[in-house]
Design a protein around this nucleic acid. Structure first.
Lengths: 226, 226
DNA sequence: GAGTACGAAATCGTATACGAAGACTATTGC
DNA sequence: GCAATAGTCTTCGTATACGATTTCGTACTC
């Protein structure tokens, strides 16, 4: 973005952005111990703003904080994943339904283009790229949501998910095909100005189907984590 | 030893609880200017923990914070109210549906008792008491929600609402009667182990009906469809 | 040899202090 | 008389410092 902005922004802000970036891009992997003094030194600031940044990240659920002990990057605990996805399915479904009436033909075209890329991506499957495109696609759908609170919840959910980096679809490649088809179906619903209820249900099911696929996968075989 | 739990908790925690309490109980009314140094002195701590407490409250939406300017108690901006209620209708609906299968006969009985009190309360209408009971009632319904994230979102929503103190029903007394009836209907659905979809929709409509009543009342006209 | 107790190191929590940014006020020029 | 500007004053933002708490290692005892 603008590195000049980081200079004008408060130190807390800088620290927040820096730590968050490192969590999301995987430099700090789950379980990583976040020591205030060390981070402060790395960023060339004192511990106070770092502390504030950590607490903000805690509120977002990206780090876990224990009093008098310290902070660690929040784990990808499968249970947590389940909860996050379920929550996201609900709020994203609502956000998509609310923003649907505000989605114009131009937006639909953009979304369709992204989905075409995704379909193409299926050939020589790249889970990371696919997951990225997936986020782009859904962003177009829910970004017009007029209720900022709901939109914020959706963003938080995606952030949480991003911290289990790379890709959901790495674990459930089969799901990717269905996903692309469901995207097209969703777009059709939006184009035809379907009922909010119908759109909401479709968007929610779309997400919880991915969750179900993941659960079926991890329950069936050995857990490949660790 | 727990009566002085505030002593064992961290200063930040104390400050957080103290400020939050004053916002909720109305000592600090909306727009009230929260000056760090003053609060710190009142509580007998330094500004650092107070600052942290304020930021936490900001994350919850109870206070509005402006860089280099200060914090004020978040207003009851009607638009904010609308957003909060809409969000709550969605997450509370989901939470209620998810917890419905876990609600036992004892819980239903308790809820019914609370609702009976509410009905009684209608005679010599006390909006504050009614609103309190209303929260108790709904708490019983969603508190078993197995997804802690969703449950947390519900609590936050209620907190926000609590900060526009006293009572929603002060503004829409007529709505109170319908509310009690809808509560009974909700309980019947839960008892009969109705579909999650049905329960969710009922719970959501129950809340958005209150919102609509409020909107109709305050605008006395109509707002654009949402 | 294993378990416990004591002590040292690491890290967090909070206080105090100083610098910076914005808001208010008084004064001056038009 | 009104507006613009300069100066002051309040309040926030961050650094540094010290006390509190936890954890880990080591030695001692059973």
């Amino acid at each position: 973005m603008n590195d000049t902005a980081s200079a004008s922004a408060s130190k807390s802000e800088q620290a927040y952005a820096a730590v968050k970036a490192r969590i999301v891009d995987g430099s700090y992997s789950p379980g990583y111990r976040l020591v205030l003094a060390k981070i402060a030194e790395d960023l060339g600031v004192s511990v106070v703003p770092v502390r504030e940044a950590i607490r903000r990240l805690e509120a977002e659920g990206l780090v876990k904080f224990e009093r008098n002990v310290g902070a660690t990057v929040a784990g990808i605990d499968p249970t947590e994943y389940l909860y996050t996805m379920q929550t996201l399915s609900i709020v994203e479904g609502a956000a998509t339904a609310l923003s649907a009436p505000l989605i114009g033909p131009a937006d639909v075209a953009r979304a369709r283009a992204v989905n075409a890329e995704m379909r193409e991506c299926l050939e020589h499957f790249d889970p990371v790229r696919f997951t990225r495109l997936n986020q782009d696609f859904h962003s177009i759908l829910f970004e017009h949501c007029p209720n900022p609170h709901i939109l914020d919840l959706v963003h938080r959910g995606w952030n949480r998910l991003a911290s289990l980096r790379s890709s959901t679809f790495r674990f459930v490649p089969r799901r990717a095909h269905e996903s692309v088809d469901e995207h097209e179906a969703l777009l059709r619903l939006i184009e035809s100005a379907a009922d909010a209820d119908v759109i909401e249900k479709a968007a929610r099911l779309h997400r919880s189907a991915t969750l179900d696929a993941y659960l079926a996968q991890s329950n069936a075989g050995s857990v490949s984590a660790h």
